[in-house]
Each structure stands twice: as C-alpha cells, then as structure tokens.
Design a protein around this nucleic acid. Structure first.
Lengths: 231, 231
DNA sequence: AATTCTATTTCACATGATGTCACATTACAA
DNA sequence: TTGTAATGTGACATCATGTGAAATAGAATT
C-alpha cells in the first residue's frame, strides 16, 4: 500500500472525479428504497415528501437536495424499469430464428419482469398525468416501444412473415394493451395470475400478427381452455 | 290560465316533487359546462376549483355546494359518458345477425363517440389515480365492459362462432387496448386519425376472435394497406 | 490532531390550493 | 309583499409544498 492513502483508493475507483460510495449517493439510494417500500403497499397518491423522508429517516427538506419533486423521483424509477424491460424483450426485436418463438420468449420475459416490478409501473403511470415532465417521460417510454414494434412488423412484412397492413397503429394498439393490462393485473396486491395474463397477451399478439394457424401450433403445449367462470 | 300560477306549471312539469328548471340545477350545469370547456384545452392537472368557478362566473366556495371536490365532478362527467358508450355499443352485445358485422358496427360507433368526447375520457382517466372513489368508478366502468365482452365471447364460443379459450383475460386485454389507444389518439388536440385507429382496433379484435379469414372478408372494402411511414 | 473547506442536513418561513364556517343574499311559495 | 329555504360569499384554518439561511458533519490538508 505504501504511499497510497485509503481515501485515494476509495475515491479513485472510478476515474474522472466521480467518487464511488459518496455519502450523498447512499442517501439518494436510501430515499429511492424508501419510496419503493412505500409504493409496494400504498398508491402513489398517498405518497408525500414528509412520509417518504420519515420512512427514510431523514428530514423532509433534505429530499429537495436529491430530487426536484416526487415526480422526478418517479422518473428515476421509470428509467431503471425501462432499461430492464428493453433488455429482456430484445429477442423478438433483434434476435434471429423463428419469429413466433422469439415473440413468445420476449413477451414471457416482459410479463415476468412486470410481475416483479408491477407496483413501480403502476405508480409511474398513476403519477404521470399529474406532471408534464413525467408524463412526457412515460409517453416516450411507450412510444419507444411503438417505434421498435412498428419497425419489426415492417421488417417481417417485407420478409413475407406478416401480412401487409399499416404497422404503426397496430403496434400502438398492442403496446397499449400490454401496458395497461399488466398494470391492471400486476400493479397492486394481490397480483393477478401471471399465466392467464400472458396467455391472453400471446393470443392477441400472435393471432393479430401471424394468424390463427400459428397460434394453434404454439398453444399446443398449453393447458386445455378454461371454461370455468371466474368473476 | 285561471287559477294555475305560472310557478305551479313550471315546477310540476315533472311530478314527484322534482322541480324542472330549478336554479341550483342550472348552476350545477353551468359548472359542468365550464369544466368541459376548460378540459377541452387544458389537462386535468391544471384544473383548480378557483379557475373553474371564475370561468363559470360564480364564487369559488359555491363550488362545494354542488360537488364534494373536483373528483366528484369528474365522476359526473364519467357517468354521462358511460351511458352514451354503452348505448352505441349495444349491437354486438345484444344484436342479432352476423357477429362480425355487429362487432364492426359497435366498434365504429364507439370510436365515433370517443372521438367526440375524447378529452373527457382522458381527463377522467388522468384524474382517477388521484382519488380512491373516482378510481373505483373508472375501474367499474372498464370492468363492466369486461363482463359484457366476456359474456358475449362465451356465448359465441358455445355457438361455435369463436374458438374456445379462456374468455375473460382476452376480453380484458381487448378492452384495455381500446380504452388507452383511444385516450392516446383522441384525448388531446390535435386528435389522431379516426380511421387508422379504428382499423387497428378492428384488426386486432377480429383476428383475435374470429380469425384472419374473417378479417380478410371485412377489410375487402377497406383501402389498400398504407406502406407510408408516419412517425 | 487541528484546520479549513465543502457537502449535507435542518429549521423556519412563504406560498398556494383546499375545504369549512357563519353570514349575506336571492329565489320563490304563500 | 313577506317569510323561509335555497343559494352565494368572504374570511378562516389547514396542509403539503418548495426555498433560503444557518447549522452540522465529513473529508482533505497541514
């Protein structure tokens, strides 16, 4: 260790002046964690800066050193979620191989992630209409998917895998369905049934894009149709 | 006119004590109208009791004689909308004849109504997460559709018109798609294209419920697929 | 260890919207 | 016209928000 002081080691883990475990970073994370814990059991409308900070064990006004307001905090949560979802849906968007299998894989992954992070998703979509900035971030998130799905449909139409139609409106329809169906099912506790939500999403996507024949093939491994009525 | 006083004529138009053009009813309507005018050009988050009442030309505190708060007002708007939508979608739900034609008629009507009342729909769905009562009303509205669609699908499955599958999750998926696609397209000005939204909705519903063959027949009269890219 | 400088936190306050009250005013039936 | 209930108003208490100055704690330098 010779001359190098401990502080130098710690602080210079990341070059460029960005220190690693800076106190403020830890505090910021503390706040994020507290908000997460809160939103897991309460709707966003009940979240107040005071509540949040007392949960985090810090004074209320300290909040404003880390976030402009609650909406900016929600934006931070959204961005983390965003990244995760884009990662796990990559297969259909950029993978190679049977498009239907890839689609199924992507949608399964998406449902899986959303099942985990459901309350975040709901909190963000609840909070979005109350703040212009957050609303834009949320809109952009959804529209990024619109772009990606539109592009993929058009590619597969060109390849003759999907019948020709105006791709964008359909992509938008399917994405809205995903987002709000998932928020409905997984956005609050007790969360709905993963499997039946996924089945419905798969059914709609596949029959819309690839036709019922494709659907029949995929669902062959699935369980028999439920006739049971569950109100 | 003999003995009958004018007031008696006016007040007894509707028997049962419910007077007709009572002052308070007119004022209430004035407030509703003002809110509508406001929401047509501003998001719900900018609506304040003060603004609203000065728009209506009445004092702020008078508002609370007519509504508990802004959310109750939104609930009133929702109920008016609700009725209208249920009326125009009746064909598919209870009509007789070719199910696909009926479905198309219902969805066309729904898009038509929503195009007119888009901003109301958006305002309600924006406001809903902020208030438990309104949120419940909004949820019930959507779930009433879930029930109706589920029932109809099950009926047509029993009649062999629709392939067997678990109806409710699919009904929910299709309804979420309708609601939020429509809010997206028609909820603010400038509103999106009626036709392309309708086409997308029709495509998804028909191919999901009745298969692509049915779809091909219906869309024969439609315009050629647009290859144009409109970001 | 003492010192200095800065990052972090807190306290006290101003603001803005809400909802409620007692009271003024108006509408309307007698 | 007049009395009473319905309607409208102003003043107030409340609550969460966001801000700035002051206090405290942390880290680097000597």
């Amino acid at each position: 260790m010779s001359k190098t002081k401990r502080s130098e080691i710690r602080r210079r883990t990341r070059p460029g002046g960005q220190a690693e475990p800076r106190k403020s970073e830890r505090t910021r994370q503390l706040i994020l964690d507290a908000s997460l814990k809160f939103l897991w059991t309460h709707p966003f409308r009940d979240l107040t800066v005071g509540e949040l900070m007392s949960l985090a064990g810090i004074s209320r006004s300290a909040f404003y050193h880390y976030f402009q307001d609650l909406h900016e905090l929600m934006e931070a949560l959204l961005h983390a979620f965003e990244e995760e979802v884009f990662d796990v849906t990559a297969p259909w968007f950029s993978g190679e191989g049977d498009p239907i299998s890839l689609l199924m894989e992507s949608l399964e992954n998406m449902v899986q992630v959303c099942y985990q992070r459901g309350p975040i998703l709901r909190a963000v979509s609840d909070a979005a209409p109350m703040d212009e900035r957050l609303e834009k971030a949320w809109t952009r998130f959804v529209e990024d998917f619109d772009d990606a799905v539109t592009l993929r449909i058009e590619q597969q139409q060109a390849a003759g895998l999907i019948k020709p139609f105006d791709a964008r409106p359909v992509a938008m329809a399917l994405n809205r369905m995903d987002a709000y169906l998932i928020i409905h099912h997984f956005g609050r506790r007790p969360r709905g049934n993963r499997e039946s939500a996924l089945d419905a999403i798969l059914r709609v996507w596949i029959s819309t894009l690839y036709g019922e024949k494709a659907l029949a093939n995929c669902l062959s491994r699935s369980k028999a149709p439920t006739t049971a009525k569950k109100k």
